[in-house]
Nucleic acid binder design. Sequence first.
RNA 1: GGCCCCAUCGUCUAACGGUCAGGACAAAUGCUUUUCAAGCAUUAAAUCGGGGUUCGAUUCCCCGUGGGGUCACCA
Length: 460
Amino acid sequence: MTETQRFPTSNGMKTTTEQKVVTRFAPSPTGFLSLGNYRTALFNFLYAKQHNGKFILRIEDTDKERNKKEYERDIIESFEWLSLPFNEFYRQSERTDIYKTYLQKLVDEDKAYISKEEKEGGRSEVIRFRNQGSTVVFNDIIRGEISFDTKELGDFVIAKSMEEPVFHFSVVVDDFEMGITHIIRGEDHISNTPRHILIQEAIGAPRPQYAHLPLILASDRSKLSKRNGAISIKESRERGYTPEAIINYLALLGWNPGTEQEIFSIESLIQQFSLEKIQKGGAVFNEEKLNWTNKEYIRALPKEKLMNAIEERMSKTGKFTGISRESLILLTPLITERIEKFEDITDMAEKGELDWFFEEPQYIFPESLVWKKGSSRDEAKKHLQALSEILSTLSLEEFTVEKIESIILPYADKEGKGNVLWPMRFALSGKEKSPDPFTLACVLGKEKTLTRLKKAANRL
RNA sequence: GGCCCCAUCGUCUAACGGUCAGGACAAAUGCUUUUCAAGCAUUAAAUCGGGGUUCGAUUCCCCGUGGGGUCACCA
């Protein structure tokens, strides 16, 4: 992990004479927190932290039908897992009195009105905003000036009843009440912004700064959603991505500091982040790059953590019960360099790629023991026998990768590397693909190694 | 369809109006103590089209085209 920049002495940090920055992330608990939503949260977080401001988490649960407590829990757990601390927490469902006050005020001032409407069964009244139909122009930090003719909005609904404000209304009231200075949200909210500005003006709220983020797209360039490949934080955790990799990858989706740096700690993101450098166009989510990023972080993980992860994933497959710590130490680097995310450990185990460790190979096809490029069964047999003799001269303490290699290599060089090393590797692993023979021998230990070499020789 | 937004390699992206249009992922090829993995090296790969402005446009303007978003008593 390298960081090219470290706390420059004079940078673009804003001075504290400005108004304190307050940002918010306002998800509705109608599903598991997606990576895309999380990126919005991350950008809000980074911006607030960079300016020593506040970052607020606000659960927008005004839609009683679709909200679930389970999803709210998921959002909070995800924030914890990813170490994104928020300074304040709110639930809109607990703030209806506040909305009601503002609603009543607008009705009293005739800026909104109660509209009696026909509807098959049920409710017959809604509260509508008295829309003058002016042209609203606002400045977006990412996109510049955007203007809308609000005539076509008509007198839009701002509440289902005095107790049930609609999203557009509660958002504006909350952003005002909470002193939000910067609204950083997805591009899909651009068309909601004129409505919000109209409401702001009606309740006398100042206009915050807007920054509309480009959308994260699926590979077909449509909006990423559960149906076309969106991954939730919960799911990425289960798949074995690290929090740091997720943050790193997401930060670079639609943003980049203009350098060639690819790996960023959260601290360096806070320091280097800027809304101005955010891309305007949507960004396709690329799982392969996420995998690569994750691999970079996995390799940098302390060995202890890797061993724990490996033991945990392996035991889920039913293997690895009662493995010795010594074996685990030997196996860990072999597994680590072959995986991109922890889920791959399970895959390896299920595909039998680690079977050589747990059980003796059966050599069902003895020909497989012979190096295909110009060796014979007799030769392979001869080499296997020679190898067991050579290795039996090593003591248990000497049975290390380096020692084994140094004692076998001269013989292999003389007889032809492939001719010697392929049978050895296959005898020990019983697999077409496996780690190198010296490592195998070392991990298996002297006794098993000699047994397998002899057994394989007998099959030829 | 109306309104709004956007447009550099397959993908993520860099480039005060002057660069051989750079980097990363993925791909291909080769090297390394057999295979796999890892590592290293190399290669291929882009400015949507047309008009302007300018000595000079990836960059500024206009028009197309393409893509996306949004049009709820859902957020």
